[in-house]
């Protein structure tokens, strides 16, 4: 397996790792949003979906394990590459200038670290129930499953929580926008016809994901989704 480690250690191997793990994480974010949109269909829909997920048993743990490996690989590779990039220019320019690099591309380390902090908070909030306000954390719905609808609606009725979630989506938009554009280039697709399409598609997909998540985060405050009794 040393050949695989050597590939990861190389500059391009590291880039490819970022692209492949990045696109897998994007796939998760899409599925996550599609699942959560069932919040709009009422308590029964989202709670039934949560129960269905939990009933997958071993399969769910395999998926969670895989997701964790992909996530850790993405972070570890980013740390390695960013450190190497910093070491490659030990002395900065007295006069810095940027010609055509986008803001999103220049803030990948910042947006990545912000998302890392957000993901930890998000897990503590909904998965581990550590930061839930009130006593609804991990409360059963009487049918053997968690009352996800109550957890979500109670949380997002607190303005501070809803705003933090919505604000995180701006960072997610920037990160996904540059990540999705880079994915094709890193894996070797650069074409006069397709690259402009990929770049536009990256912006649209990143905006859809961020807007969808932000909409859900603000839906309770906006009165679109009613707080569970």
């Amino acid at each position: 397996m040393s050949w695989l480690f050597d590939f990861w250690r190389s500059s391009i191997g590291g880039k490819v790792t970022m692209a492949v793990t990045g696109v897998l994480l994007f796939g998760f974010v899409v599925a996550h949003l599609l699942g959560n949109l069932q919040l709009l269909a009422g308590p029964d829909a989202i709670n039934a979906y949560a129960k269905w997920l939990h009933d997958r048993g071993a399969l769910l743990w395999v998926a969670r394990g895989g997701l964790l490996v992909v996530f850790l690989l993405h972070v570890a590779t980013a740390v390695r590459l960013s450190r190497a990039n910093k070491q490659a220019r030990p002395v900065p320019y007295a006069s810095e200038a940027t010609v055509q690099a986008t803001f999103a591309s220049r803030s990948m380390v910042f947006s990545g670290l912000t998302l890392l902090v957000f993901v930890v908070y998000h897990l503590l909030h909904f998965t581990f129930g550590v930061t839930n306000p009130g006593d609804f954390a991990r409360k059963g719905n009487g049918a053997g499953g968690f009352d996800v609808h109550a957890m979500v609606t109670h949380s997002f009725s607190v303005p501070a929580i809803a705003v933090v979630y919505a604000a995180a989506q701006i960072v997610l938009f920037l990160h996904l926008r540059h990540g999705l554009r880079s994915f094709a280039q890193t894996l070797g697709l650069c074409h006069r016809r397709y690259t402009p399409i990929v770049e536009r598609l990256a912006t649209v997909l990143a905006a859809l994901i961020a807007a969808g998540n932000a909409f859900l985060a603000l839906s309770v405050l906006a009165g679109i989704v009613k707080v569970a009794q």
């Binding site: 880039k15 990039n85 010609v99 986008t102 280039q185």
Partner: peptide
């Protein structure tokens, strides 16, 4: 890689 150059992050400043 042995020379200690950094890694491309697809910002395209080089092309500019």
């Amino acid at each position: 890689d042995a020379e200690g150059f950094g890694n491309c992050t697809n910002q395209y400043e080089c092309e500019a």
